[in-house]
Design a protein around this nucleic acid. Structure first.
Length: 585
DNA sequence: TCAACTCCGGTGTCGCAACC
DNA sequence: GGTTGCGACACCGGAGTTGA
């Protein structure tokens, strides 16, 4: 295919009625509202290979109704391309792609447009060549995949690669191409193909599909389904939840009223002003929504009872956990939680039978895919294999011993958690507090200090667990770094006995670098544990100093016009009673 | 009526193991 | 040593259904 110059826009009006004289290019079909044309690049006579940075001329007159075509699907955001072929019309094939995106199927195209902030709206499709002899279709597709480099750098991928791209594992450098020497003309072409101009295409009313769509672009039928969702709770629980909601609203109202009343308080000295500001800040903090606490739900039952199916149904992910109707599928303990911190999905699944282990048929692609993705693999059915995690697993147990020694609830008070408990118990004893009840000023200060101290320790404990998670993750990352050259080497192996050869090399690498690799990972981990310990001690020292300073500055004498908040206190009491809390007793 | 959508069977590919 | 079947996978394509 000859390389063309910067893209020329065709006068769409002039060629609205396609005839034998129509110059080659991509055109809108004659239908008034075509679902495919909405997503199509139109009125152009050439296209841009985003990987090759070349322009290619369109040699035929192509529309969404053209059949036996080679087409490109391009992402407006990251300019990644996919080459496909279809015997039927482009619009029919596009319908299939669109459907797979809506259904969130695990394939390269839906995966790309359902993840990393992408959506169907970022998709652009256009035909590039019509093949008259259907037998040549495959050849032409192959040619274009090679020419446009969409196998290496595009979406013509096997599933492991799309998993990688989507952040189930570390994303590769797939930034939109930015080359300093790209001409201005080329940039203007890019915008034609994907950015500003397309916004015009997609929002134009003429491009709407026949089926009525909701405001967010979702098909109406889906909205209906969403509305039909029934509550999973019983009537009693629903009522309890409503009570909680009411109490929360009342509490927020009381906090807001107290805050407003405090705004009217005046004071003379700087010390009082600071105190007042501090108090207001604390009240303001209370009114801000707090992150919800984790709630752990255990799900037990006989094998094959449908636990995985239930979880899949609850989270609305049909293939999150393996499930089936005939026999037990998962067969291992599994923890499912929302992954809000790390884009990396990790799972350790062990349910391959001895028979299956002996029989490698069908696993060769999986092994190769695993190597290409640095030890990580996710099949289209959702099955996940993480070799680095599996390799590091025995070390987790070993590391846990170190962790518990340093941070666990050691009765000897040597560990951090032990020190926390000891500190909590001995710093302000309950009996000491009770004895001060007759002196309200001192009593309230001590209550304040103890409350803040407990809050601080709890926060630090949370932080500690968070960091523990990160440190544990670093273990498999470290192993991955050591194994990476071998993975890359293995991913290039093909031909007869490639499966056995890849197995042999991986095994050999693991065995040869076992000591160095694991020791290095272990050293790094221990260092991070040490850093964490130091951090915790420093935090306690700083935060406790602040708490004590604030406590000793409580209620200066020169505050005037203190508001009457008895009404709000009553409101809070009612809330606590409704929730059966014993705060005021 | 017809475009859009859904579902499901079909086809091709690959490497391996078993079989002839 | 050649052939065949297997299993996992991607993706095509057509029949049937839905709904504007």
């Amino acid at each position: 295919m000859a390389e063309a110059g910067p893209l020329q826009k065709i006068d769409a009006v002039a060629v609205a009625v396609l005839s034998s004289d129509t110059p080659p290019g991509i055109y809108q079909c004659t239908a008034q509202r075509c679902n495919c044309c909405q997503f199509m690049v139109k009125s152009v006579d050439q296209f841009h290979g985003t990987n090759t940075k070349k322009f290619y001329k369109i040699k035929q007159v192509l529309t969404c109704k053209s059949s036996s075509v080679i087409y490109i699907i391009e992402c407006k955001k990251c300019k990644i391309q996919y080459v496909g072929r279809t015997k039927s019309s482009l619009k029919t094939r596009f319908s299939g792609h669109k459907n797979s995106i809506i259904k969130r199927e695990i394939r390269p195209i839906p995966d790309h447009f359902n993840n990393d902030g992408h959506s169907l709206e970022d998709l652009v499709i256009f035909p590039i060549e019509q093949v008259t002899d259907s037998g040549d279709l495959n050849e032409r597709e192959e040619y274009w995949i090679k020419e446009l480099e969409t196998m290496e750098k595009g979406l013509n991928l096997v599933p492991f690669k799309c998993a990688k791209r989507q952040g189930w594992i570390e994303p590769p450098d797939q930034e939109p191409p930015e080359e300093a020497n790209e001409t201005l003309a080329e940039e203007s072409v890019c915008s034609d193909m994907g950015t500003s101009d397309q916004r015009v295409f997609f929002t134009s009313g003429s491009g709407e599909g026949k089926r009525k769509r909701c405001e967010d672009g979702e098909p109406k039928c889906r909205k209906k389904l969403k509305k039909k969702k029934l509550s999973v709770f019983t009537y009693e629980i629903e009522q309890l939840l409503l009570t909680c909601e009411d109490a929360q609203q009342d509490g927020e109202k009381a906090i807001s009223q107290v805050y407003n009343k405090l705004s009217e308080v005046s004071c003379r000295t700087m010390e009082s002003k600071n105190f007042l500001e501090d108090l207001k800040k604390k009240i303001s903090d209370l009114s801000e929504p707090k992150p919800k606490k984790n709630v752990y739900i255990g799900l037990f039952g006989k094998t094959g009872a449908g636990k995985s199916s239930l979880i899949n149904a609850l989270v609305n992910e049909t293939q999150l956990l393996p499930s089936g109707t005939l026999k037990a599928c998962t067969s291992v303990f599994v923890q499912v939680q929302a992954n809000t911190e790390n884009k990396k999905y990790k799972a350790d699944i062990e349910f391959i039978s001895k028979e299956a282990q002996r029989d490698n048929r069908g696993h060769h692609k999986k092994l190769k895919a695993l190597c290409k993705c640095d030890g990580y693999y996710r099949s289209s059915s959702g099955e996940i294999v993480d070799l680095n995690y599996t390799l590091s697993e025995p070390m987790y147990k070993k590391m846990n011993v170190h962790f518990l020694k340093m941070f666990g609830p050691d009765p000897s008070r040597v560990s951090i958690k032990g020190k926390f408990a000891s500190f909590q118990e001995t710093f302000i004893r309950t009996e000491e507090l009770e004895g001060r009840k007759k002196e309200p000023e001192k009593y309230l200060r001590l209550v304040y200090i103890r409350t803040q101290q407990r809050k601080l320790l709890k926060d630090l404990e949370k932080e500690m667990l968070q960091r523990k998670k990160q440190i544990y993750n670093s273990l498999s990352d470290s192993i991955c770094d050591t194994m990476r050259p071998t993975y890359q080497e293995c991913s290039g192996i093909s031909g007869t006995s490639s499966f056995t050869e890849i197995q042999r090399r991986l095994k050999s690498k693991i065995e040869s670098s076992e000591k160095v690799m694991f020791n290095q990972a272990m050293r790094e981990m221990l260092k991070q544990f040490g850093d964490l310990k130091e951090y915790l001690m420093k935090e306690i020292q700083t935060q406790m100093t602040t708490i004590l300073r604030v406590a000793l500055n409580q209620t200066p004498d020169d505050l005037t016009g203190l508001p009457d908040v008895s009404e709000e206190i009553e409101m809070m009491q009612r809330c606590c009673e409704a929730l059966e809390l014993r705060v005021f007793k």
